[in-house]
Every structure is written in C-alpha cells, then in structure tokens.
Nucleic acid binder design. Structure first.
Lengths: 189, 189, 189, 189
DNA sequence: CATGAATGAGATTTCATTCAT
DNA sequence: CATGAATGAAATCTCATTCAT
C-alpha cells in the first residue's frame, strides 16, 4: 500500500518539470535521473532514447476536454462561456507545465505538433458545443464557428505566451461577454 | 562596390534561419558558421557567447507595426480589419522566421519574452486604432478593447502554432467579419 | 586479481606527472587521458572540471612528516639534523613531482597555497622537535625557532628552485653543521 | 616632454602585472593589449610571439644587488645584516611582481630559470660580502658561506611562497641575529 | 607604422547511450 | 532488473597569430 510512485513515474514527472522549465534540449537525462532520485542508467532502461520521454509524456495527457453539459447555463451564452473558461482554466492549469512543454517542442517533434493542433481543435469543438447548447439556433453556425475560433485562440494565447500576465482573467471575461453579446445580436447576420 | 552583406550580417541571417527552423539549442554555432560561409571562430569573434546571437536578432526586429492610416476604410470596420490583417500577414511573413523564433525561445530567454509581449501589445494597439479610425465612436471602448485582444490572439495564433494550417486565411476573414459586425451591433451594450 | 591501478588512479598519476613537468595550464586534459590510457571523457567523468584534478592531488599528499623519534641522536644536534635532512630528502623525493607542482600552482589556486604553507609549518615543527629532543634545554627556544626556520627555508629552497643544482647535498650538510654548532654555542645568548 | 610611457612600455608593464597575477599561460595577449590600452595587433607587432614578452621582461630586470658598502656597519655583523635585509626588502619589493613571475615560470622557460639561479647566487655573494666586510676574518669562510646560503634561502622563501605571511619581518630579524651570533661565536669551529 | 578583422587549431566540457556486472 | 562506469562524438569557446589596409 505504498503511495510512493514507482521509478518510472518519478522519471516522467521529473522530465515533465524540467522539460517545461528549461526546454527539451537543455535538459540532460542525467538531471532527470537526479531529480527523480534514480540512477542514471534507469532512465535509459525505461526510455531507450531521450525523445521517448516526450512521447510518453504526450501519451499521459488528459483528454482535457471539459464536459459541455457541466457548464452550460441554458439560455445564457455569456454565463455558459464564463463557466466554461473557468473550467478550462482549472483543467489547463492542472496540466500546465505539460501543455506548455508541448507548445514549445511542437516544432521539432512532429508528434507533439499533431497533438497540439488536436487539442486546439477539441477546444474549438467544446466552445462551439457550449454555445449551441446554451442557445440552440441562437446564431448562424458560421458565427458560432468564428466566435469559437477567436475564444480558443484567446484561451490558448493566455495559457502559452501570456501566462505571466496579471490582468488576463479580467480581460478574458470582458472578451467572452463581448462574444456572447455579439452572438446574441446576430452580429454576422 | 560589393553589395554582398558583410560577414557579421551573414552570420545573423544564418542564425535566424537555423534557430527558427531547429530551435536555439539544437543549432550548433558550427552550423551557423558553415551556412554563413565563415570560419567557426568568426561567429564567436562577433558574438562572444551563443545567446548574444539571440540578443542581436531581437535588436534587429522591425517595429513591424502597420500604419493604421494606410488600411483604414472610413466607415467600414470589416473592410478596415480585412486590409489590416492582410497588411499584418505581409509584415509578419517578412519576419516570419524571426517572429517564430522569438515565440519559441521566450521561455528561457527573458529578453525575448519581453520583446514578445511588447509585440503583442503593439498589435493590440494597432487593431484598436484601426477600429476607432474606421468608425469613430462606433462602439464602447471596452468592446473595442475586447475585439482587439481577440483578434490579436487569433493573428498571433495563426502565425505561431497554426502557421501550418491551410484554411487559416478564410477562417480569419470570417472571424474579423464577425467581430466587425459585433462592434457595429454594439454587441456589448 | 589485477594489481593494475584503476582508471581514476591512472588519471591522477598522469595528471601529477604532466602538471609537474609542464605546468597546470600547459597540460591539456586530453594529454592526461592519453597518458593514462583512458578516453578523454573519463577524465571529466571523474573530475568534472580541470581544477578538480589539482584538488584531488593535494588530497592525496602524504602527511610527509618524518617521525622525529626515528632520527634523533641523543646529545648530538648535528648528527640528528643530518639524519633528519636525509630522511626529509627521501620523503620529499618520493612525492617530488607533486611537491613541485604545488609550489608552482600555489599562486592561482588558493587551496594549494594553503597546503603549501601548512607543509612549511609542519617542516619547521619537525626540525624544532628534533633539535629539542637531541639536546633538551640545549638552547633558548627563540634560537631553536630561528634555526628551524632557516633550515626549513633551505630544505624548501633546495626542493623547489634549486632542485637542479648538483652541490646541494654538500652545501646543505655544511649548513646544518653550522646551525648545530651555533645552537651548541648558545649563539643568540 | 611627455612622461607618458610609450606603447611598448605600457605593453610590458601590463604583461608583467598580468603574468605575475594569473600566470603566463592564463594571460591572453588580448588582455595585455586591453590593459595597456593598445589595439590587439600592436602586441604582436612589438613582440612577435608571446614568449618574447617574457624574454623582454627578464631583460628589464634590475641587477637588484644591494651595494655591500652601503649597509655594512663595521664590527657589527648583526646590524649589517639587519640593514642588508631591509635594503633587500626594498629592492625586491620594487620588482616584486617581476621576481615572483620569474620564480613561477622558471620551470617551463629555461632562460628564466637561469636568471633565477643567477639572482640567488648574487644574493649569496652580497650576503657573504657584507658579513666579511663587517668583521673581516671574523669567521671561517665555510661558516660564512653556510650562513649566507641559509639567509639567502630565508630571504628568498619570504619573497616567494611566504610573501603573504604577516610575521615575516620579525622572524627574519630574529633569524639574522641568530646567524650573526653564530658567526661571532665561531660556531662551526 | 598601426589596426582589428579574420583564421583555425585546439582546449574544456557536456551528454546520450552502451554494457558488464 | 538495476546500476554506474565507460565511451566518444560533438558543442561551446579561447586565443595566438596573420595580414590586408
């Protein structure tokens, strides 16, 4: 009944942390071993090559999709989006380092880029689902798409580049109220 | 009367290209020298340490701001934004590798992160200026802010993560039409 | 059941020899590896940075103190010193390269300087002990101190700067006879 | 009527200082140029190869011999030696860095070693001359030789290894009083 | 005479990876 | 299964020296 994670898990946790902080290339496997408290050889015993660590990390990603049903406030797009963004913040924060790491290494690791684009698309999908559920037929699908894309980009931006900013929360809430109103007004009509 | 760029410039150009393609850490200075057609030692003659190359590259960034006056179509927010985004695309493409490089290395190079946040803020400023100029007093400032933030995030997103996608152009145009309409409708009112 | 020294020891032996012959700075770690018959990487596996080799060498120094009891001839200071100097010669020759190396690198490596001053003080102490044991109360302590300092300087000088001279042995013996007589005569009285 | 030294002299002064402080190998010619306030190329213009700097420095050494006549107190060996050592201290301190530098680089630069041994021999000669002048026929030549060797070693030691010690002055004075008394007592007879 | 850009050999150091135990 | 010594390729950086101007 040990709740100590096994060596393999400790290695992955250490890799996640260090990759996110210093980057993949700048993190020696020896430091991963050190932080995980395992001998150096064990890292390569479990993960033959260094990139295998990245692959394993991507595999551990939560599907991270918020269940639309849980945040929808029927008839109120703004409130629904508000709750959605809060839920997303919680979900993304939970895997923040990992998400960030992916975003960083996407370029040189195709598998990572694919995962990243996937995540963005899923994000768009969830937003669209929430909007539609909150006010079925409340706006033309093209508008819902646009709003979803914009909001997804904004959320994404906040969790990658702008994750150090302080006023992110407020601005974001203003933005989604704006989007909700735009949809309500049948903006693109 | 050679118009060949000097060795220093060739080194910077090579570094920009390789850093953007492979990442800072994954690019040996020897490869930079090779691509610049200079001996290895010369790279370190001009740039004592490798990060000095990054610093120099950031310093060479164009202010990359599109002049609002040149894209504004009086009375037509959608058209103005359309022209703005096209202009931004051209401007950003011109320094695409460099922009991308910044975005990637921001984490581990504070000077780069600062520059990046600066660029985003300037981007927001330009968008806001264009919207205001196109329809003075056409929408509450808070809405203009929100729209500017959203569009800036979308533009940014397209030029970083999603720069491989094909349908970016179209989606983007739909999005800015949507935003323009939202503003026109006084969406947030 | 090999009595071959391990790689680490072979590296230290090679470093000692080369540092003493050519100096610390003029000895590349690659040459140390070569002479030790190990790959270049192993030198830095055991000794992360080059100065760590110096530190390790200092740590290996024998306490190099001759046991006063073994050389004292009761009642005969000259004979005692004679035997002491011979014993010191043997002891110092055994670690000659290392001693010389220390003396040379003392300036730029504080740890080495400290060790060197320590060795000199121990040397003075041994000489004083021998003199005192040979003729207890035979001379004022201040004179014994002076004689010990002088002899220690002479021994030191011979083993550092003047170690190439041929007539060192004879001159040294004349000197210690002189010192012994001085002490016997109650010179400083 | 400029009293500013010329470039060549400034280079030598800078080299002397840096060689003495950091060692010959650890001092780049570029740093010498920098400290001398001359362009890098000029160092090699005046001194084709780096060791030429050392040779030139040795050539600039003062003969540094104290004139025996100036320190001798007729009939008083102790006082004479006292004045001699003080004079030597002043003389050696004046070229301290240079002396020290020589002593350090003697091993790998034969010309320097020769100069160093020469200096020691001259030192012995001066001491002997002073002793003899102070009390002609006061002690057997062999004893005078021994005392001179011992004192020279002590002076030397103080100006090389032990030049950081605080109590050097006092101890030294005790030692030379001791030697003078020994000679007076006809110690070695 | 004087300069500083240019050169390239080579030094230190890092590190993923292997493998005998 | 687990370990850590061993390997060697390669990276960053230094520097004496040359040479065109």
């Amino acid at each position: 009944m040990t709740d100590e994670p096994g060596a393999r898990d400790r290695i992955l946790a250490a890799a996640e942390e260090l990759f996110a902080r210093d980057g993949f290339d700048a993190t020696p496997t020896s430091r991963i071993a050190e932080r995980a408290g395992v001998p150096k050889g064990l890292v390569h015993y479990y993960f033959r090559r260094k990139p295998d660590l990245l692959t394993a990390l991507v595999g551990r990603l939560p599907s991270d999709v918020v269940d639309p049903a849980e945040v929808v406030v029927a008839g109120d797009v703004a409130a629904s989006l508000h709750r959605l963004v809060d839920a997303l913040d919680r979900a993304l924060d939970a895997s923040a380092v990992l998400s960030h790491l992916l975003w960083r290494e996407a370029d040189t690791h195709p598998a990572v880029l694919a995962e990243l684009e996937d995540r963005f698309d899923r994000l768009v999908g969830v937003i669209r689902a929430v909007v539609s559920a909150a006010r079925p037929a409340g706006a033309p699908p093209a508008d819902v798409d646009s709003a979803a894309q914009l909001l997804a980009a904004a959320v994404s931006h906040r969790h990658s580049v702008a994750r150090h900013a302080d006023d992110g929360q407020d601005a974001m809430h203003r933005e989604l109220r704006f989007l909700a109103a735009a949809l309500a007004a049948g903006a693109g009509a």
